[in-house]
Computed example of a mutant assay.
Amino acid sequence: MTLRTEAFLDRIQERGDYNNRQEAERAARVVLALLGAHLVGEERAELAARPPETYALILLSPLQAAEPLSPERFVRATAAWIEGATEETAKWDVGAVFSATADAAGEELTRRVLLQLPVGFDLLFGHSLPT
């Protein structure tokens, strides 16, 4: 089920403790574009069907990453794309967007998405994978 844009951004704004909707939207665009570059196949398509259409297109449009980024490098890349961000604020941005995305995706799809990502992404999503 696709979320409405307002509901999706409200979740991100609340979890990221952003002062306004624009900050939540900026974080969502950057984090989902980077995430989309790391996913392939059915999981990428299924995940893109969950957030509002604008964000689904962002998930689907990027080129594939040349190599998977570790969670730390993913956070650094996020910081590089958000003006004024530090690694610490970028980690907050990633967590807010990932947790809202995981809620929209549901437990089973989130688990399959995490299996495509390098070890440690589960903590950024707020979901630990069983070892």
Score class of each variant (00 low, 15 high):
56 A>T: 12
1 M>Y: 11
4 R>I: 13
49 A>C: 11
118 P>I: 12
28 A>H: 01
50 R>D: 09
40 V>I: 14
117 L>E: 03
36 G>C: 12
125 F>P: 08
57 L>A: 14
62 P>N: 08
55 Y>D: 03
126 G>I: 10
33 A>H: 09
121 F>Y: 14
74 F>E: 10
86 T>G: 12
46 E>T: 08
89 T>K: 09
18 Y>V: 05
12 I>D: 00
101 T>L: 14
66 A>Y: 01
91 K>S: 13
128 S>G: 13
56 A>G: 15
43 E>F: 07
131 T>F: 13
117 L>M: 01
100 A>V: 03
95 G>M: 11
36 G>N: 01
97 V>N: 04
42 E>P: 00
3 L>H: 05
75 V>T: 07
59 L>C: 10
72 E>W: 02
122 D>L: 09
96 A>V: 03
129 L>V: 05
111 R>L: 10
4 R>V: 05
129 L>P: 05
81 W>H: 15
11 R>E: 10
69 L>E: 15
97 V>R: 06
61 S>L: 07
109 L>T: 13
114 L>Q: 10
112 R>E: 15
119 V>E: 10
76 R>G: 02
120 G>Y: 06
20 N>G: 08
81 W>I: 01
27 A>P: 10
38 H>V: 04
65 A>D: 06
27 A>I: 04
102 A>P: 08
16 G>F: 02
85 A>V: 05
9 L>S: 03
122 D>S: 15
40 V>W: 08
56 A>H: 03
60 L>R: 14
73 R>F: 11
10 D>S: 15
7 A>D: 15
111 R>Y: 09
6 E>H: 06
4 R>S: 12
70 S>D: 07
79 A>H: 01
